[in-house]
Structure formats: structure tokens, C-alpha cells
Simulated scan of single mutants.
Amino acid sequence: MSYAGPEFDPFQPRRPRRRTLTVAVAVLVPAALAGWLVYEAVADTGGGRAGAAPATRSPAHSPNADSPTDDGGRTVAPPAPRPAPTAPAGTAAPAASGPLKGKVVVIDPGHNPGNFRHTAEINRKVDIGTNRKECDTTGTSTNSGYTEARFTLDVARRLRALLQAQGATVKFTQDGDRPWGPCVDERARIGNEAHADAAISIHADGASAGDRGFHVILPASVHAGAADTRPVVAPSRDLGERIAGNFVRVTGSAPADYVGGGTGLVVRNDLGGLNLSTVPKVFIECGNMRDTKDAALLTSGGWRQKAAQGISEGIVSFLRG
């Protein structure tokens, strides 16, 4: 999401290439297979589960739903199938037993890969309490065409797997399972109706080249129209501070040098996803897609796994108090 406003470059999709993991590696080096299975546990491919029999992609699988990709932007081919199409947005994903059992986390992958095809719909204004704003935007991209919408889905799926492994019930606002959107007011409503214990919207910024680093956006105290963030300002700040601290520790990334005064924290009152939330919620801009050094991180599958891990550990810290 561009910090400056809703104007972004057009979507430039790239056709991913698959690569396979040979059986020989799994036979000769059991440790490598074990490492792969650990990766599959944390790099969710939109519904796949390690350990099931191989199968082809379901014809009903949404063409907009990307799987986690490697450092070269190629889709990682899992040894296990995708058993079914992704559940509709707002539907709880299965949770395992663990320390977060009973906790609900809503993950909001920013934008949508199909938004650029539906400009009329996403340019429609919606009420965000303080004013009216575009339903959604296309998002930004790196100079090489790796889109924010693709990035956010990949990190969100990795984050979902990590939280599920600890027993949390995880819901998405969208999982590449709809042609566009949802609008920012609906994204907030999904978290509210889920009575989420924590909600996070994942983004990457489109600031000027040379601007680097991440920042977490916290809700301002807003009481206007349909918006009343007063009950969630304090817990949202706690959530945001924990995510920022863990993001630095796990990824090694520094707080943004162009906003937030070096704290990695920014308070805003112009984002419908925050203004309309009645549950603790923050946004995270994981880096600046327009800076070549940040873009090298954002396009790395290994770094995106670290990003998901850092966000996860911040959420876990918040939920466990």
C-alpha cells in the first residue's frame, strides 16, 4: 500500500514456473525431507497439507490465489495435494490444539490480484467514519513487476500456518478467492463479526526510491460516523508494538527511515480498515517495494518466511499477554 495515496502502477503479472523435489533427495538425505516437511508446515500453499497423497490442482481453485514462492518468484511445488478450494473469506480455517486454542486471528491480505481489472468497483467511495474513501486500490509493485497483492497473500498464508500450528483459529478477509476487493469497510467488518482477538492487515509500501524499512500503523482515536476506535486504541498499540519488536528481531529489518521518526510505529485516522474496527487491529507495511534493496527482501521467499515468523511471534506475544 502506498503511504502517499491510492495512485499505483498497474498490475504486471508474471507466469510462475514450477519446480519439483526429486524422490532421490528424499531417499538419500532424510534430513532434507524432514526440512521440506517443516517448510510445508509453515509455508501454507492455500490449503495444502503435508503428508497427503500427491494430486493435481483442483479445477475449482481460484486463478488469483498464489502459492508461496521461492526467491526467484517460482511457485514451490509441494509433495502434498490441495484437498479443496479455499474457504470463502471470513470462514475459519481449521485449528490444531496448542497454546492459542480458542483464540481467533483475522488476517487481511492487502488489496487483491484482480483489483486492476475492476477499477470501477474499487474506486467506489465507502464511508470510513472520518470521510469517504475508495473501496480499495490496486496496490503497488516492485520495479520488476512483483505486486503487492501477490506479496500480501504469500505472507498471509505463511502466517496462517504458523498461527494454526499453535492452535489459533485463523480467518482471512480474502484468499484470492474473489475477483476483487473486498472493500475496506467489509475487511473491517469481517474481523468485527469474527470477534477477533487480534487482526492484522498485511501490506508493502510504495514510497520513493531510497526510502527503506517497515512500519506498523496503529489506529488513532476516532469517534465519528460509524467509527469508534476508542475501546481498541490501547490494545491495538500493544499489539503493534509487539509485532514491531519481533519483526525487527526476526527479519533484521530496520524501522522505516521516512515515516514514524525511527520508531517503526505510525498513528493514522484515514484508514477504513482501522477506523471501523471494533477489535484490536494494526497494519504492517513490511518494506518499500520501490526501493531496490527492500525489493530484494520482499521478493525473497526466505525473507517472507521470516516476515511471517516475526509477525506471528508478535501476535502470539500479544495473545498470551
Rank of each mutant, 00 (worst) to 15 (best):
M1T: 11
S2K: 13
P10E: 07
F11H: 13
F11M: 11
R18I: 02
V23F: 10
A24I: 13
A24T: 14
V25G: 05
V25I: 13
V25C: 10
A26F: 12
L28V: 08
A31R: 13
L33Y: 12
A34V: 14
W36C: 00
A43M: 10
G48R: 13
A50V: 12
G51H: 03
R57H: 02
H61C: 09
H61Y: 13
H61Q: 12
T69M: 14
T69K: 15
D70C: 05
G72A: 15
T75Y: 08
R82I: 11
P85M: 10
A89H: 11
G98D: 05
L100R: 05
V104F: 10
V105M: 05
G110W: 05
G110L: 07
N112D: 11
E121N: 08
I122D: 01
R124S: 13
R124I: 04
T130K: 08
E134F: 13
C135V: 01
C135W: 01
G139P: 09
T140Q: 11
T152C: 04
D154K: 05
A156K: 09
A156P: 11
R160F: 03
A161E: 03
L162Y: 01
Q164E: 14
A168T: 09
F172Y: 05
T173C: 02
D175S: 15
G176T: 04
V184Y: 01
V184C: 07
D185E: 12
R187G: 11
A198M: 04
S201D: 02
H203D: 01
H203V: 00
D205N: 15
G210R: 12
R212T: 10
P219E: 02
A226Y: 04
D228H: 08
T229V: 03
T229H: 04
R230M: 02
V233S: 02
G240W: 05
V248C: 03
G252N: 09
A254L: 13
A256C: 03
G262E: 00
T263Q: 00
T263D: 02
L265V: 00
V266S: 01
R268Y: 02
D270G: 06
G272L: 05
L274R: 09
N275Q: 03
L276E: 03
S277T: 00
T278L: 09
C286G: 12
D291R: 09
T292Y: 07
L297H: 08
L298S: 04
S300E: 00
G302S: 15
K306W: 00
A308P: 02
G310D: 02
E313M: 12
I315Y: 11
L319H: 06
G321R: 05
